[in-house]
């Protein structure tokens, strides 16, 4: 099955495309709303600002296209800020509505550790998305995260617990960067690519 990578300008599309291909994806990269609405399997990347990333989705009607695809039964994987966009809302620079595909809110870390989190962190995960991952350590770069999301499938701790991954039916999100997480990250991508 073809995997469609949403070509957001607020994302590290090139790195994610390389990793998806290395994980075996037959990849199509596009920012065409029509193609996105009809895609069977989507990847929504994102780095930097939630507000800017969400604005690009709405201004280009990609948000509606994603909803259409998911309602049709397409699978979707959000990565980093792409993962945060799946939630109801984020409190980065005021409150901004997200796609509302998974329940919960995204907030800044308020623990004693320096923000942003930059580096590897161990997650506790039990879900098919993590099948075959021997060493649950992934690479994170983030200042914001969801906490105790109802659809949480992986959790990590950075001065307090946070949601490292979510799944609601065929919608997945990972707060870490699978494209920078070596074999473990590629395995997660491969599991998503092979998801039926």
């Amino acid at each position: 099955m073809k995997t469609t990578l949403i070509d957001s300008p607020v994302a590290n599309v090139a790195n994610i495309a390389r990793a998806l291909r290395a994980a075996g994806a037959e990849l199509h990269v596009t920012r065409d709303a029509g193609e996105i609405a009809n895609a069977p399997k989507l990847v929504l990347p994102g780095v930097g600002s939630f507000v800017a990333a969400m604005r690009w989705l709405t201004e280009n009607k990609i948000d509606a296209a994603i909803h259409q695809a998911v309602n049709r039964g397409a699978a979707l994987l959000g990565i980093c800020v792409g993962h945060q966009l799946l939630f109801d809302r984020s409190h980065e620079m005021g409150t901004t509505l997200g796609l509302g595909l998974v329940r919960g809110e995204v907030r800044q870390y308020d623990g004693i550790l320096p923000v942003p989190q930059i580096g590897w962190n161990r997650i506790a995960a039990r879900a098919p998305l993590f099948d075959g991952v021997e060493n649950g350590v992934f690479y994170f770069v983030n200042s914001y995260a969801a906490v105790d999301a109802p659809d949480e499938i992986a959790r990590a701790d950075y001065g307090g617990p946070f949601t490292a991954a979510v799944q609601h039916q065929r919608v997945f999100g990972v707060q870490f960067h699978p494209e920078k997480s070596s074999a473990a990250g590629l395995r997660v991508l491969r599991n998503y690519i092979g998801w039926t």
Binding site: I112, G119, W120, N121, R122, D157, Y158, G159
Partner: peptide, 16 residues
């Protein structure tokens, strides 16, 4: 309080 919180937290962040 910070020192106590830090040593009580899961010691899971790997050094690189």
């Amino acid at each position: 309080a910070e020192a106590r919180a830090l040593v009580a937290a899961p010691n899971a962040i790997p050094e690189r």
